[in-house]
Nucleic acid binder design. Structure first.
Length: 255
DNA sequence: ATGGCCTGCAACGCAGGA
């Protein structure tokens, strides 16, 4: 099973890239973030023609998440249970015998912002839910745009980013807590090139100069992690004209 | 140098992203 996550930064704009990428890479499950569209405009028909069923949770202008799969995902859950949120950032569903959680964790903007406090409250609620989901689903995969660079090696300029949003200690502590629940960072199960990132700023030639952050992640429960064979960041769509600022992260799991 | 770039909305700049 090949699973992937990709923040497409507007599915309307990126649909051609997505369709080309699905055709080339043939993933079995794809979690998408930042659809930036309402559900009535979701391109379900075009994706079905490409061989993918969709479940999705969108809103106008911002946020929005989807799970694509070869067979229709079952038992979808929108949002974190018990955490009312107008922002469409969470979608969980079951594909075959694997529970998949697609996340678009809040950005936080800056440590002084109300949005940062929202991010930390949001992460508190997420932790409790993930713990329960792990207990309920031995085969659990949590994929998405976490908006957290877990370690300094995930940051192109750790000194410049020290203590900043995406790298602050409370955010990194939340990421470590997810690992403490028993989830594994699939990317770090394998040797990787130094300076591997999943997001690069549109400005100042960020991608060309590899000024990036690794903030998009695939976390796997123990049962999936032991069967994980590869995990990599696919930089190829980032090289296209009018790209998303994020690259897909892909993992292959046996069975 | 606190903006550079991109998206959506709807206006002729803004919010938001990271």
């Amino acid at each position: 099973m090949k699973i992937a996550t990709w923040n497409v930064n507007s599915l309307k704009v990126r649909l051609p890239h997505l369709l080309d990428w699905l055709d080339a890479d043939q993933p079995d499950v794809v979690c998408l973030q930042e659809l930036k569209m309402t559900d009535d405009t979701f391109p379900a028909a075009a994706l079905a023609e490409a061989g993918y069923q969709s479940v999705f949770s969108g809103q106008k202008t911002y946020n929005g998440v989807a799970i694509l799969s070869r067979t229709l995902a079952q038992d979808p859950v929108k949002d974190i249970p018990g955490f009312p949120d107008e922002q469409r950032r969470v979608l969980a569903a079951t594909v075959a015998d694997t529970r998949v959680i697609c996340l678009y964790i809040p950005n936080g903007q800056s440590l002084e912002s109300d949005k940062y406090q929202y991010k930390l409250r949001w992460l508190d609620a997420l932790q409790a839910w993930l713990k329960a989901e792990l207990a309920a689903h031995p085969r659990l995969a949590v994929l998405g745009d976490f908006n957290i660079a877990p370690e300094d090696r995930d940051v192109h300029d750790p000194a410049a980013w020290a203590g900043q949003v995406l790298c602050s200690e409370p955010e990194r502590a939340h990421f470590r807590q997810m690992l403490a629940h028993g989830l594994k960072d699939a990317f770090r199960l394998f040797d990787q090139e130094e300076k591997s990132y999943s997001w690069w700023d549109y400005r100042q030639g960020g991608f060309r100069r590899n000024l990036g952050l690794r903030i998009d992640h695939i976390l796997l429960s123990e049962a999936l992690a032991t069967r994980c064979r590869t995990c990599h960041i696919d930089k190829s769509p980032r090289k296209l004209e009018r790209p998303s600022d994020h690259a897909p992260v892909v993992a292959v799991i046996d069975g």
